[in-house]
């Protein structure tokens, strides 16, 4: 393990705990978090329910009837004592079609004004790089993608939208991502995808997994309609 990464374990209520790493860079965190979550899940610890990866942490849900906090804390510590890390985690490559039409780019004006760029340039920057899926979380299938070009860094909305339309692609600080459903959210909306990111009838239920590489492909309004109707 990264010599500087310090493991801390804290209770999260009376039926969960959180394992956190301090002094770990974003790129080191992904393999570390996933190696730890897999090891914990595979260890069949008494009372263990579920391990849930975060950016630099793993939440562990457990049954206190089977193992109380001191017991679980000790078992997790022991389980993670000799953690072998992959250099990086490699995933699949996924192209996500995005329609950047003004009808969907609800924050176009805000983005152009704040970033000082014409919208064509913003689209070109957003769709010309590979992103890495860091985390699936917050809502079913919601993905946090790292690798946003520096000139697109943009603070979140001061007042989150009560209702972000399904498929919206947004920018929140230095991350980008896709809202799979109509939910409240505070990211700047730049376009919309007809792709389905959450499909509970399949296994896994999400199109993307942490470690996957994503590229956004611009599509026209007509292509958006035909792709959406076809799915």
């Amino acid at each position: 393990m990264n010599a500087k990464a310090k493991t801390e374990i804290h209770p999260l209520g009376d039926s969960a705990l959180i394992v956190e790493w301090k002094n770990v860079s974003a790129s080191d965190a992904l393999p570390l978090v996933h190696a730890a979550a897999s090891k914990i899940s595979a260890s069949k610890l008494d009372g263990f329910i579920e391990a849930v990866p975060g950016f630099t942490s793993v939440a562990v849900y457990y049954e206190p009837l089977r193992a109380d906090w001191p017991t679980m804390n000790a078992s997790i510590r022991k389980c993670l004592a000799k953690l072998t890390l992959p250099k990086s985690i490699s995933g699949k490559r996924v192209e996500i079609p995005v329609c950047y039409d003004p009808e969907f780019a609800l924050d176009q004006d805000r983005l152009c004004e704040h970033l000082g760029l014409p919208f064509e340039k913003i689209i070109q920057l957003h769709s010309s790089v590979d992103y890495k899926v860091q985390l699936i979380g917050f809502a079913p299938g919601f993905c946090y993608l790292a690798g946003l070009p520096e000139p697109l860094t943009m603070p979140r909305l001061s007042f989150p939208r009560v209702c972000v339309p399904a498929g919206s692609v947004g920018i929140g600080h230095n991350q980008t991502g896709v809202y799979p459903f109509e939910i409240p959210g505070g990211w700047n909306l730049i376009g919309r995808t007809p792709a389905k990111l959450f499909r509970p009838e399949l296994s896994p239920p999400t199109l993307l997994s942490p470690g996957d590489t994503v590229r956004f492909t611009p599509i026209s309004r007509d292509e958006f309609t035909s792709l959406r109707d076809r799915r």
Binding site: E50, P53, G137, F138, P204, T206
Partner: peptide, 10 residues
């Protein structure tokens, strides 16, 4: 619905 929080499912 346990075991699906890693997919963002509450």
């Amino acid at each position: 619905r346990w075991q699906f929080q890693k997919f963002g499912v509450p």
